[in-house]
Design a protein around this nucleic acid. Sequence first.
DNA 1: CTTGCGCGACGTTTTACTTCA
DNA 2: TATGAAGTAAAACGTCGCGCA
Length: 276
Amino acid sequence: MMAGNDDGLGLSLGLSFDSHPHRHLQLNLMPSWTNDASSDRTSETGRSLLRGIDVNRIPPSTADCEEEAAMSSPNSTVSSVSGKRSERETNGEDLDGDRDCFRGISDEEDGETSRKKLRLTKDQSAVLEDSFKEHNTLNPKQKLALAKQLGLRPRQVEVWFQNRRARTKLKQTEVDCEFLKRCCENLTDENRRLQKEVQELRALKLSPQFYMHMTPPTTLTMCPSCERVAVPPSTSAPTTVTRVGQAQAHHARPIHINPWASAIPARPFNALHPRS
DNA sequence: CTTGCGCGACGTTTTACTTCA
DNA sequence: TATGAAGTAAAACGTCGCGCA
């Protein structure tokens, strides 16, 4: 059962096993306005210093309330934040004296620490999605600009991006899982087919007529460096050939190659399309 | 080398919303 | 039709580890 507000992640996925063994998630990472994040970092109050302090209990200034009220989404009828709201919020960047402004008098009085969740409007979500498509992380300037544009707190924008990244990763994991499942199925099929082929070849091998038409096993010389079998100078080569030319430059050593095995075509195996 | 800070990842909690009996 | 339980998505939070100055 779905909640009906599936955002349709619209991921741009690039799965590839061809030239690179690692699949990659195509995300546009900070191309345009990647400003110097470090220079822009606001002076967040150290979390460690404030750990254990319930900032929710800190009464907000009237100015903060007014400022935040102006910033809040027009559609967000209610918005209060958990009593365990992190210390980040106490800094100027987040302007978070607001949380008590939104909570309302009753909450303030009963000291309840429940957090009201703000549902973002469709427009807000759309803007955030567009922004995420451009860059899945935000520097402080981007965060502030986006928050101002949407009438949200920077912390909300930050949280949205964190959750969005998590959803993207989850989606990618699901895609990968499905991919590996298909690989496994194909490998199982291929294995079954090869087992059958081996059985057939063994049966042929035991048949006397089979030897009548076959040349004896061949001794070939293979270069261990380049792993190539020597090409005999004469095409009418006997059953035994030795490595010449290139292999002699390397440390050629004779190895025995099972001629029956050559019946199996030497081609790269594609787990997704084993028979193609 | 140590320390503090900022940030992202990750797991969890809480809330809003939908579906269905 | 109204209602409550169950399920789901997502907003918000806490914690940890890493990089950097």
